[in-house]
Design a protein around this nucleic acid. Structure first.
Lengths: 226, 226
DNA sequence: GCGTTCCTTATTGTATACAAAATCGACCCG
DNA sequence: CGGGTCGATTTTGTATACAATAAGGAACGC
């Protein structure tokens, strides 16, 4: 993180994920350079990486914009995640050991706490959730699978929408994690895969519902304003 | 392809895929710059892209080397390919149209010709095979799937080894393609997926056998030399 | 002889200047 | 008005110089 290009990368990345840089927004190299306090050279390197992450896109004339996502795009991503994370869970179940299992239980406890508190601590929930899934992925011991999933998981639209999930969805997530842990304890790969696939697919519908709600609320506000 | 960084990218990429740059070999930016007749700036950009393609790796101190692959790595890649290309085939079967079907048949005819000629035209076989699979992938209509598979498919170790496949393997490949086409004609997604998964998994064993042969032959030569 | 330290050298990281290309707007013509 | 062309301005691409950092090797002590 000491190199300027790394700093620029994480800085711009945060701005995109937090939504401070809105989808579709233009990203001029000069402006970013000034913002990050570095020259254009490391900015260009950061932009390349962000493009590989699919967080930005480039027009045919090489100008950079924050990626905008259609519902179809999101669906596409969830389909792939469901398959790949399911596969990861199956492999992880076969390679699971006690230390990892213990860590998973810990993350899921933290996740439950975050959900149970009033009001629910969504950020904490998301952090624990991320850790939980990352740990499973690492346990699957496939470096390429890890790389492939990275780009699918780190999607701002999805994280932002999570703040509008129903509480019941969050509780259900925690329960499914418990069931995953049970599958891991028994080393039952196919079971773990089935739970995980369902878990991700359900997450898509939770996203889809929350998204629809948000759109409706937005349209409502626009009507009032008019 | 007009930009210097693009030229550098494809030039270096070709050298890696052809094997002129051996696995493990160091890639100095200065040296590459001179070789390509451009400055280091576009070279650095090309190296980033090649790293994303997993054709090169970088040490912790940021030096670049041509990727070297263990058999485990190759196995890992084939497992993922089998799953993802299987999925692509299923989707493609559901979205197939006559034009694509015709093109697939054409490629497979070309592939058969390449196999039937004496001696078999391996380069032609590989080219047609690539086209065949690429067309299926495109028909699956999932931009992200396409991106993910790209990095798994374009692996020099695998292409190079293909030259040592048994003739019977090539014939079998052509037959499996025919079966895939039959599944596509009937729009039978699960059938297409099953064939494709098997097709890729068989390809791994063909690779593995050819690789073992090559290793044995090499060891033999070393013994003679000593 | 082995390991360590320090210095030299090679290599990568960053900044800046300039070249090439694209966008935008004014202006002109139909 | 609408459309198109040209040019000014912005933006990206490349080259080069310099700074920072890591590798390699010599000299030294143990």
């Amino acid at each position: 993180m000491s190199r300027a290009s790394d700093k620029a990368y994480s800085q711009i990345r945060e701005l995109i994920i937090s939504g401070d840089l809105a989808p579709g927004e233009a990203l001029g190299e000069e402006a970013l350079a000034e913002m990050c306090g570095v020259s254009r050279t490391p900015i260009r390197e950061a932009l390349r990486r962000l493009e590989a992450d699919m967080l930005i896109r480039k027009t045919e004339s090489q100008r950079s914009y924050v990626s905008d996502w259609s519902l179809d795009d999101v669906h596409d991503v969830f389909e792939l995640r469901a398959m790949l994370e399911g596969y990861a869970a199956r492999r992880a179940a076969e390679l699971m050991d006690d230390a990892v299992l213990k860590a998973l239980k810990m993350h899921n406890s933290g996740l439950e706490e975050a959900v149970s508190s009033d009001p629910p601590d969504i950020e904490e929930f998301l952090a624990r959730n991320r850790e939980f899934h990352a740990l499973i992925l690492r346990t699957a011991a496939s470096p390429r699978l890890e790389i492939l999933l990275q780009t699918l998981i780190e999607q701002p639209v999805i994280w932002r929408t999570a703040h509008h999930y129903e509480l019941s969805e969050l509780v259900r997530s925690h329960q499914e994690h418990d069931e995953l842990i049970a599958a891991f304890e028994r080393g039952d790969g196919p079971w773990a895969e089935a739970i995980m696939t369902g878990h991700i697919r359900r997450a898509f519908h939770a996203y889809s519902d929350a998204h629809r709600e948000m759109m409706a609320a937005e349209a409502d506000q626009n009507k009032k304003r008019a």
